[in-house]
Design a protein around this nucleic acid. Structure first.
Length: 680
DNA sequence: TAGCCTCGAGTTCA
DNA sequence: CTCGAGGCTA
């Protein structure tokens, strides 16, 4: 297939022609590659065509059509990959940062939980912690069918096509007794050699190099087109099973050996140890081996080897009790703290921020770091002009660790807490027992700016296009004083802005209009009541059903809601009794901002009811049961108390059942529990 | 009353 | 990600 020559002189028309031509070309080569397995052009040539199309589509967004090859591999740019819900949530791990924490946060805790003597040995499996990104592979009848990223742990992105390009990964499991279903988790990473090669290529092409192998691996896995991923030699090591059918493992060691037998890559450095001291030794060994490994690791992972013990220990909300990540000390750098800036947040809290002489830490240049508060500042005795040690906490957020006192010259300056707001000059107050200093100004510009952006933000009213830039212009032109004013804006108002065309203005107006009918929960969250975040807003919406009910709620009514205590209730009550706030809400209502009332009773049949599960459930999993209860507004808690309404006893229920009897709490069997949920 | 655990708020860089 | 603070349970 040949490319035609373009002769037209109108660039827009040229682009249109070329786009359609590229569609045909790419589709053709896709067929040759995927279906006929007989490509006519190299991957690099294909990439070039693909990039050309991406570039054209970026320049002329209206030329993007649903059938474009750029849209084909996984959908539109916003959510370009299909979402996958993990059958079992992919949890994160708690961290230990030194030997002692491995002993206390893992070993000692486990023994306490299991009621073991403190010197009883527990066997652990130790693994290097690869610095990459977690993925989950699903093999059905031995065949790789889906691969997804960890995402937020509950849902991730479908990266099957990209994962299929990993040469070290079997598309079909080998060996005897391949299970019906095997979900396997592991870490996708780039070897240092591959990382070097990619960055060399990028620099030759005038592209910005990746900061570190992990970023490069993440970038490669999230490519629109699998062929680009194919050019990036990613690797993977498997480390944990997910849902499995047709096979059973009794230990982590057995799992790893079996997985390797099926052809799955398993890190050969894993080591089983007889007790926690072995795990500590492994941690030390790996720290030493770190520099000579062909890939980056950022620590080790220690897991209880026995799956039986793992099940017995169970999980907390975000991490299992039976494993811990032992992090190596993060990479640090020294630099000069040039200044301490004061930033004012949405709630008026004044935060000191370090302005640093730019310094590179693990590939990224860092110029600022939060100093949190003045207690912290004083504790670390940080002064302007100090030479400080900086690290990136969790390899992301920069933090000032300590001052290099040896380099003090005596000309350093201490920054005292502000007596008046650096932005508006209002009084600054430190509420007793609180760490924060707060600006009390009612029309403090940064506070107004932040509350407006918060109102428009994604979790709140989700007004697309109303970001910081627009908000600042609205404020400086005096067009908006409260959130209600947003809904009075006209197209002409927006057209006065810099870099605001007809199109953007209409989009913004559309987004505003759209936001008028939002969930009650989002609306409550958007109001920015102190102590009321996304979660509490949701709870309020569910409990009260309408804004009017919340506005008129008493402190007692508010306190009766789970997770709302005296402080939060008072804050909500105060917010709604404030006449200014009432005015804004009334105006919003007049302007048509009417959040959908929530039917209080929807799923709320069990609201306020506390459930405890005990024993082995045979008909459903605990997670599933928890979902059922929560869907109907009930709570699931861990232990039986007077506040418990129902105890659901499975087989071999133990102490919790006894406690329930003692406290005369209703005990239900599994069937009775299901019946209760069915009742209407 | 202490010791979890969860939520809220603030923050960095590409 | 981290810190502080609020709420709940033992």
């Amino acid at each position: 297939m040949q490319l035609s020559l373009l002769e037209n002189s109108d660039p827009r028309l040229d682009a249109e022609k070329r786009v359609s031509e590229l569609h045909t070309l790419l589709e053709y080569h896709n067929r040759r590659y995927y279906q006929l397995d007989a490509p006519e052009i190299s991957d690099a040539e294909y990439d070039e065509l693909f990039r050309e199309l991406v570039a054209l589509e970026e320049k002329y967004p209206d030329l993007v059509i649903a059938t474009s090859p750029t849209q084909r591999v996984g959908g539109a740019p916003a959510g370009r990959f299909r979402t996958i819900t993990h059958r079992i949530a992919m949890l994160s791990l708690e961290n230990a940062t030194n030997d002692e924490e491995i002993r206390s946060k893992l070993d000692a805790r486990i023994k306490k939980e299991l009621g073991l003597e403190s010197d009883a040995p527990v066997a652990y499996m130790c693994e290097p912690k690869m610095d990459g990104l977690a993925v989950e592979l699903v093999y059905e009848d031995g065949e790789l069918v889906v691969a997804s990223t960890r995402g937020d742990g509950v849902t991730g992105e479908d990266v099957t096509q990209n994962i299929r390009t990993l040469r070290g990964l079997p598309l079909r499991l080998t060996g005897a007794k391949v299970p019906k279903l095997l979900e396997v988790r592991g870490e996708v990473y780039l070897s240092l050699a591959a990382f070097q090669k990619i960055n060399n290529d990028r620099e030759e092409n005038g592209e910005a190099p990746f900061a570190n192998p992990r970023n490069a691996a993440a970038g490669s896995l999230r490519q629109l087109d699998p062929r680009i991923t194919a050019g990036r030699p990613l690797s993977m090591y498997c480390y944990a099973p997910g849902q499995v059918e047709g096979v059973e493992f009794t230990s982590q060691q057995e799992f790893l050996t079996t997985a390797a037998g099926w052809g799955l890559p398993v890190n050969p450095l894993v080591r089983r140890v007889e007790d926690v001291e072995g795990a500590v030794a492994f941690y030390r060994d790996m720290q030493e081996a770190r520099e000579s490994l062909p890939y980056e690791i950022d620590g080790t992972v220690v897991k209880v080897d026995s799956f039986l013990l793992q099940r017995e220990l169970g999980v907390k909300s975000r991490s299992p009790l039976w494993a811990i990540a032992c992090k190596f000390p993060p990479r640090q750098a020294e630099t000069v703290l040039e200044d301490i800036l004061l930033s004012v947040g949405r709630t008026g809290v004044i935060t000191p921020v370090a302005q640093l002489k730019p310094v590179e830490i693990s590939g990224v240049t860092v110029g600022r770091a939060t100093l949190h508060n003045w207690d912290e500042l004083a504790a670390k005795d940080i002064r302007i002009g100090d030479t400080v040690v900086v690290e990136r906490a969790g390899d992301v957020i920069p933090a000032v660790v300590r001052v290099n006192v040896a380099r003090r010259t005596g000309s350093e300056r201490v920054v005292p807490p502000p007596e008046s707001c650096p932005a508006c000059g209002s009084t600054v107050v430190r509420i007793a027992d609180e760490v924060a200093f707060r600006c009390m100004g009612i029309s403090c510009p940064p506070q107004m700016r932040e509350s407006l952006t918060h109102f428009a933000s994604r979790g709140a009213m989700d007004i697309e296009g109303l970001g910081e830039k627009v908000v600042e212009q609205l404020l400086s032109l005096g067009l908006v004083k409260t959130v209600a004013d947003l809904y009075r804006l006209t197209k002409d108002d927006f057209m006065r802005f810099e870099r605001m065309g007809d199109k953007l203005a209409s989009n913004l107006l559309g987004a505003l209009e759209n936001s008028k009918q939002c969930d009650l929960a989002r609306y409550i969250y958007a109001l920015g009541i102190r102590h009321v975040g996304e979660r509490t807003a949701k709870a309020l919406a569910q409990a009260f059903g309408s804004l009017e009910n919340i506005e008129n709620a008493t402190v007692e009514e508010l306190t009766s809601i789970r997770d709302i205590g005296a402080t939060v209730a008072q804050s909500i009550f105060t917010f709604f009794t404030n006449p200014d706030n009432r005015t804004v809400i009334a105006r919003l209502r007049e302007l048509g901002v009417t959040p959908a009332a929530v039917a209080k009773t929807v799923g709320g049949r069990l609201s306020g009811k506390n459930f405890v599960f005990t024993g082995t459930l045979t008909r459903f999993s605990r997670d599933f049961a928890r979902k059922l209860v929560e869907d109907q507004g009930g709570n699931v808690v861990g232990s039986v108390s007077r506040k418990t309404d129902y105890v659901i006893a499975g087989e071999e229920a133990g102490s919790k059942l006894a406690k329930a009897r003692e406290l005369a709490v209703t005990v239900l069997g599994e069937q009775e529990f299901l019946d209760l949920l069915e009742e209407q």
